[in-house]
Nucleic acid binder design. Sequence first.
DNA 1: CAAATAGTGTCTTTGAGACACTATCGT
DNA 2: ACGATAGTGTCTCAAAGACACTATTTG
Lengths: 212, 212
Amino acid sequence: MRNDKMTISMDVVICTMSDDELKVVVRKRDKAPFAGRFELPGVFLKADESLKEGSRRCVRELTGLKSVYMEQMHTFGEVKRDSRERTISITYVAMIPESLLVDDYGELAIDGAEFVSMTEMAGSKKMAFDHGKIIAKTLDFFAAKAAVSDIAFNLVDEEFTLPDLQRAYELLLGKPLFKANFRNKMKNYIVETDYMTVGAAHRPSRLYMKIG
Amino acid sequence: MRNDKMTISMDVVICTMSDDELKVVVRKRDKAPFAGRFELPGVFLKADESLKEGSRRCVRELTGLKSVYMEQMHTFGEVKRDSRERTISITYVAMIPESLLVDDYGELAIDGAEFVSMTEMAGSKKMAFDHGKIIAKTLDFFAAKAAVSDIAFNLVDEEFTLPDLQRAYELLLGKPLFKANFRNKMKNYIVETDYMTVGAAHRPSRLYMKIG
DNA sequence: CAAATAGTGTCTTTGAGACACTATCGT
DNA sequence: ACGATAGTGTCTCAAAGACACTATTTG
């Protein structure tokens, strides 16, 4: 019986919401193959760590964050997806509120990494390897998942405004929602705090928190 | 940089509907570890085949069937899931109408394999390795998927009765459905044929086909 | 005041859920 | 006629979808 061993890469689609867009954290490759293109952050799985540990290590090494919402998304294994060597990519999705990723100037606070628009990179040749395909699949994953779960809450801070939460839902679902309907539905899952946003040139927005 | 290589096992949860239950095709192990327990059919992924090809090969070698509905489900990679050697299990789900699997006596027509109840094996210690956990996860996968897609059609023949299709939905969703409501909803996705079931000691049932 | 965004009231339409009934076979 | 399963009609209620309105801030 043949028993070919292979390299396992744990790649993570680290997503956040910024400038009314879904963004993903990427690095620019400086070596062949695909020099100059973007790649998803990834690590090689170690012999003594589980998939969850490996993907968490990837996020931790890059962002310094330890408790981040993560979920396994899909495993990619086309024979030639990496021209150098057969590599299986087990991909996880991470969702992080923007506030945890940016510095005081609103810039991504990770050396050698940057935010790029997910819709722009979905299926794009600007991404190295099959990473454009991975991002495209992530968008499908989001649309399916946001319709039946709470994942949108992972894109906002612990205290959030309803307009912000609605934007998160809309970006994940890929379609606009009616404000009044959205707010009615959310009523059951949130509680108001006593705080309001301040300083904007329009009516202030109340801050809410998630229930459960 | 470390780059540990690992063995990849493609394991397939081959499901069908039989005796008003979801059944999965398993083999009884005759060697340690877990001798005497059931295991899911699986193959080791070859260096020159994709994940899809590997999982299809598994199904083909076991059943002889070539065009079967299959979908990637989840990848399991706990360090000690196989005591002999670190093995990553990339699991696919296959759904096959019972008629394609059984002989003239209604018995599973595969040497050394048998049908067992999925609900009975979900999380059970009767399964080798973490295969009980894999089956449990498959049931969750089904419940989520059947609510938003047509996978249930994969459990019935090309021409099927509505009572049969409803049973498929109910088993996948894990809950009973109201007949009248179910039929109203299905109206848009099926067409009637001119044929009816015969011979049963009750009113005959019309055969339908899927649209699209 | 105007511009901009936050937030509410309410109508219509759709579909989920539920129940009761009728229909047609074999024995 | 009876037991069994197939199939239909219809009511209710909750949620989706849609629109129009009011409210509160800054400049």
